[in-house]
Every structure is written in structure tokens, then in C-alpha cells.
Nucleic acid binder design. Sequence first.
DNA 1: CAATAGACCGACCGTCGGTCTATATCAAAG
DNA 2: CTTTGATATAGACCGACGGTCGGTCTATTG
Lengths: 229, 229
Amino acid sequence: MVRVIKAPEVRYAELLDCAQRLFFVHGYDNTTVNDIIHEAGLSKGAFYHYFDSKSALLEALAVRMARDSMTELQPILDDPELDAISRLNALFAGSRRYNIEYAPQIRKTFEVIFRPENIVLFHRMDQAVTAVVTPALAKILRQGAEQGVFDVPDPIAFAEMLLQFRLSLATMMNDALQQAKAGNVDAAAEALAERMRLYGLAIDRVLKLPDGTIEVAEKGFAYALISEQ
Amino acid sequence: MVRVIKAPEVRYAELLDCAQRLFFVHGYDNTTVNDIIHEAGLSKGAFYHYFDSKSALLEALAVRMARDSMTELQPILDDPELDAISRLNALFAGSRRYNIEYAPQIRKTFEVIFRPENIVLFHRMDQAVTAVVTPALAKILRQGAEQGVFDVPDPIAFAEMLLQFRLSLATMMNDALQQAKAGNVDAAAEALAERMRLYGLAIDRVLKLPDGTIEVAEKGFAYALISEQ
DNA sequence: CAATAGACCGACCGTCGGTCTATATCAAAG
DNA sequence: CTTTGATATAGACCGACGGTCGGTCTATTG
């Protein structure tokens, strides 16, 4: 193989890029180290020069995704104009906007990421993102509690609950996509919308807010996400 | 090796037993087919006579666990004395009783099953159990809706939500156990109890019940579960 | 220009899931 | 009582995969 030398940071990033693409298309277990080094144009020795193991690469990927997530969230967290409720809604809206914008990729990703053999991949990503987002979310909740708009005795506990909700919703989005692909698009969208309504309701009621103050999603979102173009 | 012939159902069950024990002690990936056949006193040929693959064995194990779960639930589902709320509470109480009775094993199991490399195992089990329990739970909810005690427009959606809650609580029990083992038993129990209270609250409020009608858990449970004997 | 660091190469190794062929056992048919 | 076919079992063997290791090449530095 032709020997090409690059700056370590560049190589490192390239390996992460290749791995991410391959993992998300074919899954973690179905992607071999050989696949990755072939795609990255690198030898095996070089690969193991950068990462101790295949799972160390996954770990590094999770860390990078967590960092990216926080970068995306930062504007909402920093905006001094927003009160706690608006901040929470902005977070949900952001993830909705993101979901719809990238609907085709997400559909594809869901198919891969929720296949039983890829739970490992999904779990590591989620774990890493959760670890950095929980404290940020708790801070918003604490702000809300201090302003008297939320009823949150334990912000960390509630932040974890919110993130669990997000995870549950993702699972349900995937189920809905499967159902939609099996033909019944309308029924799938209705069912997804109902499930989202339920979770929104749960948040509002535990926080003692009027119904619908926290907008997890509206029906149109469910349709937009799962409808085929 | 000495050739021993047994009734196929016996062998099948023995293989499942061995696999279950080994998977729960060492994890799915860390248990090799050779480990299993060695423990079961069987050759590789015999193993692949009963199962098409290692993952087929996992699948069969999941099916058996799902069947066992339903057998345990059946008495509560069949009891004609119970109304919908009592039935739900009986379900939660049953899982509490079960959790405390088997606390030492559960502590051990949690340690293994929540290790990242064992998510595959956990996910398959959960998926299989959920698939059979969801309809049963939905039936209870439908009964409650007809009796006018619950506000449940979509019983299936709510049943899925309840089972997601159960899953989240299991994750949190594991976190609490880790924290307790790190020394801070009291803080861990308090935190776990608060999280349980939150989920109970969410259920009550979405169902429009008075707070505490559905008893996900009381504080004593959290202590009993994580305290060392 | 020599010495050093470290990026890079690829043959090689052990392990693991899975396959294949041979053989032992048993029940039923002849 | 033998034959025969189906089933259960044994274990040698295979290919793919993650990971190792000795060594090469090149940019930098004193």
C-alpha cells in the first residue's frame, strides 16, 4: 500500500468519520476493522496506533457525538432572553426541527440503529450524550423551580426522566416508521402522535403546568417525520 | 467424549438453562458456544443440532422468559375480585415483592446485565417480555376506562408507556446499586425513592387519579432493595 | 548530517462461530 | 432377529475476525 503521512488529528478524525458512516450504515458488529481501514486507506498497524481496540474507537466516537450535542444545545442554554419553559420548548423544538430536516437520513439510521445487533452502538451513543446533557437540563429545571414555574424538588432526577422520555420517544418513532413502511402511514402517524401527546401530558402534569405548556410534539410533526417523499 | 443420549426436550431445556446461567454471569458476548457445550456436557455437533446459531439460542431463551413472565402474571389477570386500579397495584407490588425477595441475585444480575457489552442480552429479553405483556396490560387499562376510573383513550399506547417506565426504573435501580456499592447507601436509596415517586406521579396524573393511587414504590422499598445484608 | 520520534505497514496469531463427515442409538418394518 | 432410516452425538476442521509484533519510512531537531 502507498504510504501516506498525515497530521495525527486529521487521521484520527478521518477514522472517526469512516467508522461513523460505516457503523450507521452496516451496524457496529457488521463493520470489521478491515472495512474501516480499507475505507480510510490505512493499514492495520496504523489503526491500532490510534486506537487500542475496536471498542475504543466506538468509545471515542461516542465522546465526539456528546461534544457535538452540547455544541448544538449551547445557544439555547446561553440565550438570556428565555425563561425555563421557553428553554425546554426550544430544546424540544430543536430536536423536532432536526428530526424533520434530516428525516430521510434519520429513517435510514433508525432502521440500522434499532436492529437488535446494533443496540451496543445506540447505547454507547445515548450514554455519552446523556452524561453531558443531564446537568445542563437540570440547570434549566433548577432555574424554573427558582422562578416558581416548575414543581421540581429534585432537578437531576427529573432531568434523567426527561431524557428517558426522549429515548422512549425515539424507540416509538422507529416503531412508527416500521409500521408506516408496512403500508399504514396514517395509522402509524396517529399512533405516534398519541404517544407523544401522552409523554407531553406526563411532563406537564408532573411539573404542574397547564396541559400543552411543554410541547413535546404536535400531530403534524408525526406526519412529517414518517411520511415518504 | 462419552456419548450420552437424552430426550430432546431435556437436552433443549438443559442447554437453555446453561446458557441462561452463563449469559447472566459472564454476559452474552463473553460466553462462547464452547463454554456452553462444555457446561452442558455436549459436543458442538449436538449443539448445532438443537440451535441454528448462538443468536437463535438467545432468541429461544427470550421466548422462554416471556412465557415464564406471563405465567407469573396470570393469577393477577385472572382474579375476578380485582378492579383495574388494584390490578395495576398488584402488578407493581408483585414486581416489588419479587425484587426484594431476590435482591441478592438481582444485585448480581444488574451488575452484569447493565454492563455495556450485555445490552444485547437485556434488549432481547425485554423485547420478548414486552411483546406478551403489553396486550395484557392494555386489557387492564381498557377495563379501567370502561369502568370510568382511568382516562385512557389509547390503551396500547399507555401500556407501552408503562412498560417503558418499568424499564427506566430498572436502569435507575442499577444506578442506585452502583452508587450504594460506592459507599453512599442512604443517598442512593433516597435518590431512587425520589425517581420512583416521580414515575408514580406521572402515571397518576396522566390517568387523572389522586396522587399515590398507583403505588410504583414507597421509600422503604428502595432501602430494602439496595441495602446490603 | 546523524539521531530520534512516531506514523505507518502487513504478515502473522489465537479465538470464535459455524460446517461437515462419521458414527452410535433407537424404533419400526420386514 | 435383521435391516433400514431417522435422529442424536462427536469432534476435526474452516474462514473470518480482532488484535500483535517486528520492522520501515519520513519529518524534525540538535
